[in-house]
Design a protein around this nucleic acid. Structure first.
Length: 274
DNA sequence: ATCTATGCCTGGTGGC
DNA sequence: TGCCACCAGGCATAGA
């Protein structure tokens, strides 16, 4: 599941291949990925040059000459670059043919991903983008403001950290890792946390994300490697996916539970509830 | 404000 | 081996 580090990696990889290329044709074997009128999407995108690629939280922005293509990979979305438009495989849903002859192909087993198009510069007016909170890896973190936001919540801290309107970029993997490093129980109510603890969590979130970006993200639950999604952070995981294994810090057994409806891994000794 | 349920989806898993 | 119910989960939306 691509979270901020995976999307960042994809962005950097795509940039190296796509900047300056023009989209000459769009093929949509499964058009439901596109969240607007299909013909309009195709007409507007065709003949547009890719001028840049940006990211905010888990969203990718393909900058075109007149529009911005907003893409979210959700659970299993991946981009591939193919050398030519050959046979379309099972999970390829949107294919952009480029003037170089290469094709940018969007692949998504679960079909949860989304694409939409807005006029250039208007992406921040999309409801989904407008409401996003601070990026969890940004260098200047307003601890006072975030503490205020987090502390007033009566939800489990894990649910708060997954809430993209408060902090954006963290998903299930990195929240589990962040809380482990912070020695905080995922089900602890956010309102029970001291300012010091919240600051620790925020600092650890950044540490985890920065390290994951450096390693090219985490590859789990993916069935094949893809462009930019073949990271090495899975070797650094301390709790996520490690139920039954021993905690590296205290040797207790890591357990899996559910918090806020999500599969959650933690160490019951290192991460005690208050 | 927050919770739960539902929908979007398919592949993997466990039970028989 | 095959069939099937069930689960994973980011996000939107609806209703409690």
């Amino acid at each position: 599941m691509p979270e901020l580090p995976e999307v960042e990696t994809v962005k950097e990889t795509l940039k190296r291949h796509l900047i300056g290329l023009k989209i000459v044709k769009v093929i949509t074997p499964y058009p439901n990925i596109i969240k607007m009128r299909l013909e309009e999407f195709k007409n507007k995108v065709t003949n547009q040059k890719i001028t840049g690629i940006n990211r905010y939280g888990k969203y990718l922005f393909f900058e075109l000459e007149d529009y911005t293509l907003v893409s979210h990979l959700r659970m299993e979305g991946k981009y591939f670059i193919r050398k030519s438009l050959g046979e379309v495989t099972k999970h390829e849903h949107v294919i952009f043919e480029l003037d170089s002859g290469d094709c940018l192909s969007y692949h998504d087993v679960r079909k949860f991903g989304t694409m939409e198009l807005v006029l250039k510069g208007e992406e921040k007016q999309l409801e989904s983008i407008k409401k996003l909170g601070y990026e969890a890896n940004q260098s200047k973190i307003d601890y006072d403001k975030l503490y205020e936001l987090i502390h007033k919540s009566t939800r489990p801290i894990k649910a708060v950290l997954l809430d993209q309107t408060i902090l954006t970029g963290l998903g299930n993997i990195y929240v589990d890792e962040t809380l482990f490093l912070s020695k905080i129980h995922p089900a602890e109510l956010a309102s029970n946390l001291s300012k010091e603890e919240v600051v620790t969590i925020l600092k650890n979130a950044k540490i985890v994300l920065d390290k994951a970006i450096k390693l090219g993200g985490t590859t789990i639950r993916t069935y094949q490697s893809s462009l930019g999604v073949d990271g090495r952070f899975q070797n650094e995981l301390k709790v996520h996916t490690l139920a039954g294994k021993l905690c590296q810090v205290c040797n207790d057994v890591i357990i899996k539970t559910k918090v806020g409806g999500r599969g959650t891994y933690f160490c019951p000794t290192c991460q005690k509830r208050k």
